[in-house]
Design a protein around this nucleic acid. Sequence first.
DNA 1: GTAACGTACAACCAAATGGTTGCACAACTG
DNA 2: CAGTTGTGCAACCATTTGGTTGTACGTTAC
Lengths: 119, 119
Amino acid sequence: MSEPEADAVFHALADTTRRDIVRRAIRREQSISSLAERYTMSFAAVQKHVAVLERSTLVVKERRGKEQIVRANLDTLRRATRLLDEFEAIWRDRVVRIDALLAEEASGATTAPSTESER
Amino acid sequence: MSEPEADAVFHALADTTRRDIVRRAIRREQSISSLAERYTMSFAAVQKHVAVLERSTLVVKERRGKEQIVRANLDTLRRATRLLDEFEAIWRDRVVRIDALLAEEASGATTAPSTESER
DNA sequence: GTAACGTACAACCAAATGGTTGCACAACTG
DNA sequence: CAGTTGTGCAACCATTTGGTTGTACGTTAC
């Protein structure tokens, strides 16, 4: 997931109503009006939330007759999860590096300390 | 993760600079000024990004002498990952439900909902 | 002490967000 | 045909965001 895309996805997820819409859309396809019934806010407000989700590609809209059907895009959701998993991987890498460093110290090695990649 | 907390976490993650700060902080502790050096924006701007991350508890600050040290909080990161995993679980549940429904239809179950249209 | 460094915070600004209402329009229903 | 329903969109508003500059303050170095 490219960084700008990730911006859009996490922004879209940073709202309780939008996460709820995604959950409903995952369970089953939803028309925008059926979604709007569920919330106290106006139809237009819900429409805007759906638009935010659509821009992030977390959902796709598909016209069916006079209705617009909202479907969840699991792929984007998975890419977001994977991005968070990368953070975890960075953490594990750090642990490995520190372990290696400690082992080196313990063995009394006096050679050059690790070439920290610094990033 | 409570919903308002999730709002803060995903909002914090919805910015390339902030995700980058988190990555750096995971690799090693960072002072705010050492972080600020890495970006073209002002020190105050970086300070604000760190404040957003701190509010979401994705990082914690700890004073060390005159410096303020930023450390990543993996726990919050993991809770965010878990929340995304729940979406995946909803999806799997849907698949199971649909499979069950199809199996029921195929077996010509006595209580099949569509038997009315058979003749 | 003074100087330099790292930080905190306020004031300010432009742009984006999240909500509203109102209106137009296309597609079904009778 | 007329009426209802579902949608799209513009205009408007208050608040938040993401950046700036400037100032003040505590800590370390000399």
